[in-house]
Design a binder for these strands. Structure first.
Length: 324
DNA sequence: AACGGAAACAACCGCCGCGTT
DNA sequence: CAACGCGGCGGTTGTTTCCGT
């Protein structure tokens, strides 16, 4: 497309922040003549701005139906969910949030939500956990040590270790879903002797990582167990109803939905005392627990259900993060 | 009080698709 | 069919505000 530069493109138009006077002129004009034909508006309204600038100013700021102010928790959850479904389709997302503009949502995402997800260990692009598979070996030690803490009634130790383990479980889940992680890599890790940071006590898991036992501690990791609706491994302290409900809806609808790949945010394990028994070795150990591939394991995790129990919380606010 | 860096927000830029001529 | 006008979109930049030192 070739056209000669217009007057406003010759560099004579004003740029930068709008003054109240300019706003008033634009509002007056639009209220009088309606919107549209933006390229004519600067001249007709007496503004030394390009038409595009006028349109953006009206659309993003002066429009009477714009809702200003902080985003609510519900709006945040909706944005995250829609982003997991639609990606950076800000205009599409904005249609689901009356009174909010795509620009406002985009800015809010970039300045708040993206960072929030990252703090939670969630990749804001893929909406999946982002961590290193190498952490898996640490999980072994932590789980073992957690059992030690339990069996020896060192409650504080157990709670701390449990908290660390919860984070590492998140890493594990990510590892299971990583396309760059081969089954062999995973099996090597699962079969390898664990670190010796902690010594396991009698009746505990011992020093090597045991997915069977570990999975049994975590309801959703247990291949044969049913999804646990009131998982005690994590606590839902509220604020997730919308997310959970929506995820449930998605599960109940088509399984081939693009959203089936989305992963809602994680939260930390609770440090409530009653959760200590999560570290108990379980009786329900399944001999074939390792008979499925990591990818099948992922499918069997029923992650949606897992996440539904977690809630929309920020990890740093909820958990005694190790060495933080 | 002054300063600098970080965070938040508003606005701009370049590109694209669609409708019209 | 191509040229053009127009509006919309997403990414990026510039400015302002906040906050810690």
């Amino acid at each position: 497309m070739v056209r000669s530069p217009s007057h406003e493109e010759m560099g004579s138009v004003k740029k930068g922040s709008w003054t109240p006077e300019e706003d008033r002129k634009l509002v007056d004009y639009v209220q009088k003549h309606g919107r549209g034909r933006w390229h004519r508006i600067p001249k007709l309204a007496g503004l030394n701005r390009c038409g595009k600038s006028c349109r953006l100013r009206w659309t993003n700021y002066l429009r009477p139906d714009i809702k200003r102010g902080k985003f609510t928790e519900e709006e945040e959850q909706l944005i995250v969910r829609l982003h997991s479904l639609l990606g950076n389709k800000w205009s599409s997302i904005a249609t689901k949030l009356p009174g909010r503009t795509d620009n406002e949502i985009k800015n809010y995402w970039n300045t708040h939500l993206r960072k929030k997800l990252m703090r939670m260990g969630i990749d804001p692009v893929t909406h999946r956990p982002t961590t290193d598979l190498s952490l898996l070996t640490s999980l072994s030690s932590l789980l073992s040590a957690g059992n030690l803490g339990y069996t020896t009634s060192h409650l504080e130790t157990a709670l701390k270790l449990q908290a660390e383990a919860a984070h590492l479980v998140q890493s594990l889940i990510q590892a299971l879903t990583s396309s760059s992680t081969s089954n062999m890599d995973l099996m090597k890790l699962l079969g390898s002797p664990s670190h010796t940071n902690y010594k396991a006590g009698d009746g505990c898991l011992g020093g090597s990582f045991n997915l069977q036992n570990s999975a049994s501690m975590i309801p959703h990791l247990n291949k044969d167990s049913q999804p646990v609706s009131d998982s005690s491994f994590y606590t839902d302290e509220g604020g997730v109803a919308a997310w959970s409900a929506s995820r449930t809806e998605e599960r109940q609808s088509t399984s081939s939905s693009p959203s089936s790949n989305s992963t809602p945010p994680f939260v930390s394990a609770s440090s409530e005392a009653e959760n200590v028994d999560l570290l108990k070795p379980s009786d329900s150990i399944h001999a074939n627990s390792l008979s499925f591939t990591p990818f099948e394991a992922w499918e069997n995790l029923n992650l949606d259900s897992l996440i539904s129990d977690l809630g929309w919380k920020e990890i740093p606010d909820q958990i005694p993060w190790p060495n933080a």
